[in-house]
Design a protein around this nucleic acid. Sequence first.
DNA 1: CGACGACCTGTCATATCTGACATGTCAGAG
DNA 2: CTCTGACATGTCAGATATGACAGGTCGTCG
Lengths: 182, 182
Amino acid sequence: MSLRHAALGLLADGPASGYDLLKTFDRSLAFIWPATQSQLYGELNRLADDGLIEVSNEGPRGRKDYSITEQGRAELERWITDVEPDRIRRNEALLRVFFLGTVGPAHAKAYLEREATVHEDLEALLQTVERDTDWDTSDFNRYGHLVIESGRRYAHGQAQWAHWAATQVDNLETTEAPAQTR
Amino acid sequence: MSLRHAALGLLADGPASGYDLLKTFDRSLAFIWPATQSQLYGELNRLADDGLIEVSNEGPRGRKDYSITEQGRAELERWITDVEPDRIRRNEALLRVFFLGTVGPAHAKAYLEREATVHEDLEALLQTVERDTDWDTSDFNRYGHLVIESGRRYAHGQAQWAHWAATQVDNLETTEAPAQTR
DNA sequence: CGACGACCTGTCATATCTGACATGTCAGAG
DNA sequence: CTCTGACATGTCAGATATGACAGGTCGTCG
């Protein structure tokens, strides 16, 4: 249900069409809240039906510019200040770590080092984005900058962790009787 | 589709019933890959249909103990070593940060400080778990310990970040002309 | 003027997830 | 012997998400 509020939040910064939103989306929110084109368009229609946004202008090629309504602004504020966020953090890469004992130490270490690399790459990417973006153009960008920084720290931390975890593998595997092959 | 492999991974450590798995699940994987009871039972039946696990024993109250098959073990290994994990990381709390400009500096700071507290609490919880658990009882536990450590570091980092972000709010809001109320 | 690429919105089948509900069994306490 | 709580598996409606497909428009470059 968060896509609803993501769209609302995007429109709080100014009117835009579904097409516009989709592009903004892919460059920002998609990292933290992926959604497909079909989902977004559907959600916009529902938001309009519920009076949280409205079509403020119609352009060529069937373009519809949406604007947030007073009601929509109120709902967005309510969502941010009064609704406790879901703390669900699905992580497939971390899920696999639980089962690393089944593939043997060599594979386990390789897996963890790969995780380190992936997160180092991510950190580098975010650093580049951080450097090359002009953040001071809108509230959305200014606060988006904070999110990027969060991601950068996360990537850095996970990379560190993965390196450390890789060094732990040998300890883990030799603690028990080494003949315990299964 | 990962629940499938989560169940498979759990069974790689030894036979268990759906009921058993559910309990293990809630105490471990659920933090990183939540699933409901109905999902698990359904998946077990599908896994059995596909020959990746089999009913190795039937007990009272309709209890069915499942064991992983050779085929299942192979599939688990393939999944861990050959399949690139999804890097999707949905985070509703972070999503809201993008829109903090719409609620004003006071609410924004409150939100971020609340995030700090939540993550500090999480860190404390994970520290307790880390201290009070005997990790050396199975491969699953040994590697699970690494995951807990990852979570602990994550929580710590996010808390730090949130405190820092809260201090940034005033900077962000005063950069632009202060009269920009919208 | 024709083709191409960007623009723009939508539907649909399939899969997955969630939460509630249904159904029944067994062991042990009182 | 009855009640209670843990044990144990399953179905189902409704909401969401995914990815493919469909259909059409406008500007501009050659």
